[in-house]
Nucleic acid binder design. Sequence first.
DNA 1: CGATGATGCGGACCGTAGTCCGTATACGGC
DNA 2: GCCGTATACGGACTACGGTCCGCATCATCG
Lengths: 193, 193
Amino acid sequence: MLEPVRHERSDAARNRATILLAAEALVAEHGAQCVTMDQVARAAGVGKGTLFRHFGDRCGLMRALLDERERSFQEGFIRGPSPLGPGAPPRERLIAFGERMLEHIEIQGDLLAAAEGAPGERLRHNVYAAYRAHVMALLEQSGYAGDIGYLADVLLAALTAELVLFQRREMAIAPDRLKDGWAGLIVSLLGSA
Amino acid sequence: MLEPVRHERSDAARNRATILLAAEALVAEHGAQCVTMDQVARAAGVGKGTLFRHFGDRCGLMRALLDERERSFQEGFIRGPSPLGPGAPPRERLIAFGERMLEHIEIQGDLLAAAEGAPGERLRHNVYAAYRAHVMALLEQSGYAGDIGYLADVLLAALTAELVLFQRREMAIAPDRLKDGWAGLIVSLLGSA
DNA sequence: CGATGATGCGGACCGTAGTCCGTATACGGC
DNA sequence: GCCGTATACGGACTACGGTCCGCATCATCG
């Protein structure tokens, strides 16, 4: 399996940067939901084809906008300080993971919602796989006796942007109640010992 | 708050029935994903406007197709035989509810996926509210000590069509493993007593 | 530096969901 | 049966995401 691309052509790199800048500005101004691909293309001064070649589809563009935050988020629970990162007992790390994710959704919610594509697409992505592997590892370490893979899916389902934004906005549930609910859930499952 | 509509006009009722019939046939033949609104309109011999006036949007049409099954499903856990319906202890009813829901998704999965609209729309509907109320009542009866509303949302998130279809199709997880996972989850939360 | 092949570019084009409004039709009152 | 009006109908129209392909631009090599 060879690497097909050696260098990105200079104009392509320039265009990608321009597009991301333009998209970021438009999203900041109008909200992710209201920004159309034509708007982004015009604002960046490129053709629509260029947009889609670089990012595949609308969700790909939104994901690209999230990417930096996403990477630092993942960095946090893989190599960051306790209790989110290594060092703390798995139960504490799991609680911290959920709380951190809730904060992530609080900040990036609209973009996360806009990055959702067809049903199930989200689940097929590397990001989900990374979360899932992390949660499974923590459950494993905690000595949980049941189906770890299944439980990981369920726990992550509690942390989807769709659900959390609904709880926060439609049901007007306070962030602290969500965090407490999450922590209580983990304690119920893994014991308070 | 008056009832604005006294009688549905006869042509309207006829058209609605015709549309549902045509849509059902097209979905059966091509799958819900591949059926367009224009196809349905042409097959039913009505204009597009009529379609949208009756069902609001594509998801509304899909929901209407699900409606009958949905009602009998709800009937099952509200007034049906134990352990799904009243009579069994709440823990057993909750397990039966999840298993029944998994079967429902197994059968109606494509339609359920096609009925999903914008992120969060699903959660705003009566159907979700009914499920949520049911699960909350069972948790209450079971004497669960934590945040019942939060836990209901989490448990229902484990039973979304999006997740279950992913688990079944993409991850090739067998139905029995999902049912066992669900039962194990409930037991972990409510105790095996 | 000039030729040449690979890569990227632009924007016309397409399919689909959803809207709008002038026209047609059913229903209730006379 | 006839009329007036509320209601429904149809299909042209819009907006948007996504595709396609002929042309331009870049990198490379002699």
